[in-house]
Design a protein around this nucleic acid. Structure first.
Lengths: 339, 339
DNA sequence: GCAGATCCTGCAATCGCTTGCAGGATGAGG
DNA sequence: CCTCATCCTGCAAGCGATTGCAGGATCTGC
C-alpha cells in the first residue's frame, strides 16, 4: 500500500511517541503502558511497518543466524541433514545460511567469512567437511562456536557415528558368507572432504579381515566420489579385472547403486554372482534390496541442532561429542560366493 | 591471536589514517594512494581484521543475500534445485538463506519476513511453494524481487516445465500400450504446496484420455505427498481394490518408487502385471528401470539463479517466465496390460 | 495534602561501517 | 612564481534500529 521502507521513525511520529517506545512496544518489552502499546501497534499496522532485521541485529549485537557448510547441498546425506538441522534451528528462531564448499579453497573462505569475527553468524555447522585442528582451535580461541557432522576434531563439538564399527560390520557379514575377495569402494571427496570417514571405514574393513585371519588384496580397493555415476565406472573396472571380487563393500549406498548398475551391465546377478553391502540406508535402498549399515542421518541433523543451540544459549562451553549408533539392515544383496 | 572484534577504527589507528581510508583501501576503491593502501593492508593483516558484514551492508544499503524457501529441504527435487541455485548465487557473491516452509503459515511468515521491507534479502526464490496472486503483486509493488520454481503466477518471474504436456505424455504411453484402467497417483503437499503442478499433470492425464476417447475412472485417483512411504500405502489401496488399474501414472518418481514397493509386496511384476510411469527422472530411476518423463531439475536451479541475478543487476524489470522442456525416458516399467 | 515509590517515556549514545563533500597537498602548464 | 586541475584524505552524517539513564507523571500510604 504505502511506499517501501517505512522506518521506525515514521511509526513513532504516527503514534506520537519516540522510536524507543515503538521499539519496546513492538517487541513486547515491559515498561510500556497498555494504551501506548496499542497506539503503536495500530500505527505500525496502519503503515505496514516491518523492522529492518539487519539493523536491529546490529544494534542488539546479535546475528540470529547459523551458517552451514556442505560440500554439495544436493547430495542425499547432506540434504537430509540440512533439512533436519534447518527445521530445528528455525524453530529456535535462527536463520540458516547455507554455503556449498566444493573445494578446500571455498572451505577456507567459508570458515574465515563466518567466524564470529565477521559478525555474520552466531555459529557454524560443518557437514561432511574436514577442518584442520589448528584452524579449529584458532576458531574457538576467537570465541567461535562450531559443530561438525561426520567429522571429528577435538576442539569442536561433533556428531558422528562409529565408522570403523560400520566398516567392520559391513565387511564381516560378507566374510561370514564365505567371501574372501572383497572389493572396497572407498569415498574420496576431491580436496575438500578428505575427512576421516573413508579411512575409518577402511580401517573397519581391514580389522574384519584381520580378525578372520585374512589379508585384503589392495588391488581390490578403488575410490570415487559419492555419486553413483562415478561408482558405476569404478565398479566396472573392479568387476572387469582378471580376478574380480565376489563381493563389494561400498562406503555409501549411492556408490552401491552404481555397483548394481554395473553388475546389471555385466549380466551379474545380485546376490548370486556378486554380493554387495553399503552404508547409510538411503531412502532408495529398501526398494532395491540393498543390505546396508544404517546410520540415522536425519537424527544426526537434529543432534547437530541440539548441540549448536545448547552451545549458543549456554555461552561458551566445552566441546561435546555425540556419537550415534549404526545397525546392519539385512536385505537381499548378500549371499554366498559363486562356486 | 589478538582478541576478538577488531573494528575498523583500530585498523585506522594502527595505520595512522581515518576509517574512511581504511574502508576504501580494503575494498580496492580508487582514490587511495598505493603507499597508503599498503600501510592499511599490512595493518589489517597484522590485526587479523575482518569487516563486520552486516554493518557494512547496512551502511551500504544492500543485503547481498538471496532467501530461498522450500517445503522440505531434504526432498530430492528441492535439494537438487537448491544445490544448483546456491552454486550460482554464491559465485555471484550472494549469500543464500534457506528456509523450510512446511505449511501455509510458515509460508506466509516467510514472505512477510523476506520482503525487501525487512531488509533481510535482496530477492526471494520460492521453490515448489505457491503464492496467491495478490500477495505476489503486493510483493512486487513494494519493490520486491522474487522468482518461483515449479509454480507460475504472472506477477513474478518463474521457471517451470509444461506440466500438462508431461502428464499427457506419461499417460499416452500407457494408453498406447493398451491400458484402459490407469491409476493416477497425485501429489498433495499439505496446505503449503497446493500449487499447480498436480492439477496440471492431472489435466494432461485427462486430455490424453479424452484424445483416446476414454474417460478415466475417478476411483483410480489418489493423492499423497512426494514421499515413497505414503505412496507405498496409497498404491496398496489402489492395487487392492476390486477392479485394480493395470497401470499407474505417478506424478513424481519418488511416488513411483513407492508403487514399486507395493507391487513387490503383492507379488506383482513390473511391467508384466503392472505398468508404471513417473515424472522427474530421479537419480535412482535408472537403477530401478523406471520409465519416466524427465525434467532437468538442476537446470531449473540454474535458470532460477539466472533470472534472479539478472533481475537484481538490472534493477526492476518485467517478470520473465522460463519454461524448460521435458522428455520421455523409456526404460522397463511399461508393457502391455495382462490379458 | 505530601513524600516516596512506581511506571512510563524520551533523549541521545551506540552498533560498525560507508560515503558525500570539502579541504589540503601535489603536480603540470604558462 | 602563480594558477588550476588532479589526487588523496579526513570529517561527519548517515544506515535503522536498540538501550542505559534520567526525568516527569501517576499512584500509594500516611
Amino acid at each position: 500500500m504505502t511506499g517501501p521502507m517505512v522506518r521506525i521513525g515514521e511509526v513513532a511520529r504516527a503514534a506520537g511517541v519516540s522510536t524507543a517506545t515503538v521499539s519496546r512496544a513492538l517487541r513486547g518489552l515491559p515498561h510500556v503502558a497498555p494504551a501506548t502499546r496499542q497506539k503503536v501497534l495500530t500505527a505500525a499496522a496502519e503503515l505496514d511497518y516491518r523492522p529492518n532485521l539487519p539493523a536491529a541485529r546490529l544494534a542488539a549485537g546479535t546475528t540470529n543466524t547459523i551458517a552451514a557448510a556442505v560440500p554439495d547441498p544436493a547430495a542425499w546425506f547432506n540434504a537430509t541433514i540440512v533439512g533436519a538441522l534447518g527445521r530445528h534451528t528455525t524453530a529456535a528462531g535462527y536463520d540458516l545460511l547455507l554455503s556449498g564448499v566444493a573445494n578446500s579453497d571455498e572451505r577456507r573462505r567459508f570458515i574465515e567469512l563466518n567466524g564470529v569475527r565477521s559478525g555474520r553468524s552466531d555459529a557454524v555447522v560443518l557437514i561432511d567437511v574436514a577442518v584442520d585442528s589448528d584452524v579449529a582451535s584458532a576458531f574457538v580461541a576467537q570465541g567461535g562456536c562450531a559443530v561438525t557432522v561426520g567429522f571429528r576434531t577435538s576442539a569442536l563439538s561433533s556428531v558422528t557415528v562409529d565408522n570403523v564399527a560400520a566398516g567392520r560390520t559391513a565387511t564381516e557379514i560378507l566374510i561370514d558368507h564365505g567371501h574372501r575377495r572383497i572389493g572396497l569402494l572407498s569415498l574420496s571427496g576431491g580436496d575438500s572432504l578428505n575427512f576421516s570417514i573413508p579411512s575409518q571405514r577402511a580401517e573397519g574393513y581391514a580389522r574384519a579381515h584381520a580378525t578372520a585371519g585374512l589379508t585384503p588384496d589392495p588391488a581390490l580397493t578403488v575410490s570415487t566420489s559419492n555419486s553413483w555415476a562415478e561408482a558405476h565406472r569404478a565398479a566396472h573396472v573392479l568387476l572387469g579385472a582378471a580376478e574380480p571380487p565376489s563381493a563389494i563393500f561400498a562406503m555409501c549406498d549411492e556408490q552401491a547403486f552404481g555397483v548394481m548398475l554395473a553388475a546389471r551391465d555385466l549380466g551379474l546377478h545380485i546376490p548370486d554372482d556378486l554380493s554387495l553391502v553399503g552404508v547409510d540406508d538411503h531412502d532408495q535402498s529398501r526398494l532395491v534390496g540393498l543390505t546396508t549399515v544404517r546410520q540415522h542421518v536425519a537424527d544426526q541433523g537434529v543432534a547437530a541442532a541440539d548441540l549448536v543451540l545448547r552451545a549458543l544459549e549456554s555461552g561458551t562451553s566445552p566441546p561435546q561429542h555425540t556419537q550415534l549408533d549404526t545397525a546392519l539392515i539385512v536385505r537381499d544383496s548378500v549371499g554366498r560366493p559363486p562356486s
